[in-house]
Amino acid sequence: MRSVLAAVCGVMLTAAAGPTADPKNPTCPMQPDWSTNKTMQLTVKSQSGMKVLMAEGAIDKGLMPRLFQTLQANPDISEIWLRSPGGVASVGNEAGRLIRKNYPNVVTRIPKGWACFSACNFMFMGGTVRIVEPGGLYMVHMFTHLGDRAAIKEEIQEDADSAVDMIGDIEQSSALLASDDNDFLIRMGVSRKLLTDVMYRQKAIEGSGDDKSTRRCLTQAELFQYNVANASD
């Protein structure tokens, strides 16, 4: 009986503690629920008497026509719920601009348990009213065009001149993206300190030392501090 009670108590304590934290990214869970869809799936559903667009999966290059057509066919959509691991950065910005310009009354929301990472951050910012429910994850990182560290090392070893050209291209594209993101935040009414104080302070790629963190999940206080979220239920 004691063994059974101990086991039950252990299960209850584990459940109460919530999701297991990621040891490399301690502000975030080990397994964020950001959908495994290879491309973002757009599904219109009725929730609590209102029409909601569920946007779930990776932000792909072909998202914009699908998003435009879905919103145009459903002008009475009240909210867009986001669950995404990110994807194409420029498309995330385009989606945010489309929402803000053409559908300024639509609320963007990250429901409890769902995660919105990387390019999804910028799509979410498109909402004039933005809600991140307690337990919802707004997860940021330092954008990068570096890609695979091993591939870069191999390039340097095989062809130094080619590596220099590649690094130059990376620097230029990163600078352009940084400028675009900065302008985007200003237009969306989000504090630029989100970039300087949070995003830019994350590692672009996993380090080799003790600190390997590349992701940061904002607290509810930080979400309102940087005006990422500006409303609550």
Results as ranks from 00 to 15, higher is better:
133 E>C: 10
139 M>G: 00
134 P>R: 04
159 D>L: 14
154 E>K: 07
122 F>D: 00
158 E>Y: 13
131 I>F: 00
162 S>F: 03
142 M>G: 08
155 E>R: 11
124 F>V: 14
140 V>F: 06
150 A>F: 09
130 R>T: 11
135 G>A: 08
135 G>H: 14
163 A>V: 03
125 M>R: 10
122 F>Y: 09
126 G>L: 14
160 A>E: 13
125 M>C: 10
150 A>V: 14
126 G>P: 15
133 E>L: 12
130 R>A: 02
132 V>K: 09
126 G>T: 15
145 H>M: 04
120 C>H: 11
159 D>A: 10
141 H>F: 08
161 D>H: 07
136 G>E: 02
148 D>E: 10
149 R>F: 10
148 D>W: 10
147 G>A: 08
131 I>D: 00
127 G>C: 03
163 A>H: 07
164 V>G: 02
154 E>G: 05
122 F>G: 00
129 V>Y: 09
159 D>I: 15
147 G>Q: 10
147 G>M: 03
154 E>I: 01
148 D>F: 04
126 G>M: 15
120 C>V: 13
152 I>H: 00
129 V>Q: 15
159 D>H: 14
147 G>E: 01
125 M>Q: 12
150 A>M: 12
132 V>F: 07
146 L>Q: 13
125 M>A: 15
159 D>R: 12
164 V>K: 03
152 I>N: 00
128 T>N: 08
124 F>Y: 13
136 G>A: 05
127 G>D: 05
121 N>G: 05
129 V>W: 06
124 F>C: 11
150 A>D: 13
138 Y>D: 04
129 V>T: 15
129 V>G: 04
149 R>W: 05
132 V>Y: 06
160 A>Q: 14
134 P>G: 02
129 V>F: 07
142 M>F: 06
153 K>V: 11
141 H>Q: 15
136 G>H: 00
156 I>T: 04
125 M>Y: 10
139 M>I: 08
155 E>S: 09
137 L>S: 08
121 N>P: 13
140 V>R: 05
159 D>N: 15
146 L>P: 02
154 E>V: 06
141 H>T: 11
160 A>P: 10
133 E>T: 12
151 A>L: 09
142 M>D: 05
146 L>Y: 10
147 G>I: 12
136 G>P: 08
147 G>D: 05
134 P>A: 02
138 Y>K: 06
151 A>Y: 09
148 D>Q: 12
134 P>Q: 01
130 R>F: 03
145 H>C: 02
128 T>Q: 01
138 Y>T: 09
132 V>R: 09
132 V>W: 07
134 P>V: 08
126 G>W: 11
128 T>D: 01
139 M>T: 08
130 R>M: 03
131 I>P: 00
160 A>I: 13
157 Q>V: 14
162 S>L: 05
161 D>V: 14
149 R>I: 13
121 N>R: 11
132 V>S: 09
160 A>V: 14
147 G>P: 09
